[in-house]
Design a protein around this nucleic acid. Structure first.
Lengths: 208, 208
DNA sequence: AAGTTTTTTAATCATTTGATTAAAAAACTT
DNA sequence: AAGTTTTTTAATCAAATGATTAAAAAACTT
């Protein structure tokens, strides 16, 4: 082998295919993606997809698993941090996820269509129940309820609201931009504003 | 013709196809839908789809146009009502859309994937700019800002937050249900709660 | 350098799928 | 009832598409 380990990781055929597959699957979804699209995006012969990944479905599964792991994994880390308060967790989630999605804006809709197409598979793969219920976040939330710092007893409303405020604007981005003739730059400015505002809004909604 | 006008509208072949197409397109999206799936769902011969609608794409366009018209049309009516206050508009939107989506829970993801797949076509078809900017809602919002009843000057944040709070939970419904082992019934109860809570939350977020 | 293994390519296959066609059936008109 | 139009059906087509194969090229080993 003449290439270094890191170079291999970035520029190997296998990695090129995965990168191309991400791009195309994110943009078009599984059903609308042609294996030929991926091969072309990667600048490689079509047969290499099957040589390295056996089938379109297997390749998709890998992309999906990595995407979900990245998305949920960082959530788990934040929710499980013993050292941060509830408020700090909200701040971190808003900040990190707005930054993350700004870089990969196709991911939310990709995940949401996958939720639609394969909810059982998804739940099998992701230990959502454990991540939510066994988290430091849930403990802190319940304490805050008991101490009457928070009026809403159901943590699901809290999480739905927080994630909805963060994610929803990205999903409807073209409508937002179309509704006021915004440029991409202005949309991003709007989302930067929301980094600061969402924690304040959440406080206003839930603080007693 | 031996059937009455209303009977024809409900049970004609054309209508059966549209109903079946809605069901399948909503659930699987355009690319993953086979015309044979629609024919089977409708209990009709495959060739009839082309006889009545020329092509899969044309049939899809019709379903899409009707779906969007229904979704945005009622929004326009609410936003343009001279007789209701801002607060009442929020109450009406939360109530009506939660009821509407509860009956057709596939619609949000259907629309969101269409936003992804065809943003230009969508904006061409829907006069979002006019609906938002020329609405009574915008006037009322700006007045409220001037009278310092509302702290947030940007109506986009207001609309994104309101619609996010309403729509987002439906999009992630399987995750919500999986995270706490909810039955469909309990999920619906949760959404009924939100009918009342969303207007309160919006007030808390935006009222000075 | 010769031999071996791994990777890549062009060509091809088999199936799926949207669409068409021609004939049959049903509905309608006179 | 006979003739005409509309609707429905079964069979078929052509293109797209995921996958395979066998040979060529490249990389690696000795």
């Amino acid at each position: 082998m003449s290439t270094s380990a890191s170079e291999k990781k970035d520029s190997s055929t296998e990695e090129k295919i995965k990168t191309a597959a991400k791009t195309v699957f994110y943009k078009k979804g599984f059903a609308a993606t042609r294996t030929r699209d991926i091969a072309e995006e990667a600048g490689l012969n079509l047969a290499l997809l099957n040589y390295y990944f056996r089938s379109k479905a297997k390749l998709f599964e890998i992309i999906m698993a990595e995407t979900f792991a990245g998305f949920i994994g960082s959530m788990k880390v934040i929710l499980d941090d013993e050292k941060t308060s509830l408020e700090q967790k909200v701040i971190t989630i808003a900040e990190r996820y707005i930054d993350f999605i700004s870089v990969e804006p196709e991911i939310p809709t990709f995940i949401l269509t996958e939720i639609r197409n394969n909810p059982e598979e998804l739940l099998k793969r992701l230990p959502i129940k454990e991540i939510v219920n066994d988290s430091v976040f849930i403990k802190q939330f319940q304490e805050a309820v008991q101490n009457k710092e928070i009026t809403e007893p159901n943590p699901l409303h809290f999480l739905m609201n927080l994630l909805g405020l963060v994610v929803f604007p990205f999903i409807v981005k073209p409508i937002i931009m179309g509704s006021r003739n915004l440029e991409t730059e202005q949309f991003h400015a709007l989302m930067q504003e929301r980094k600061k505002k969402i924690p304040i809004w959440i406080n206003m909604m839930f603080k007693a």
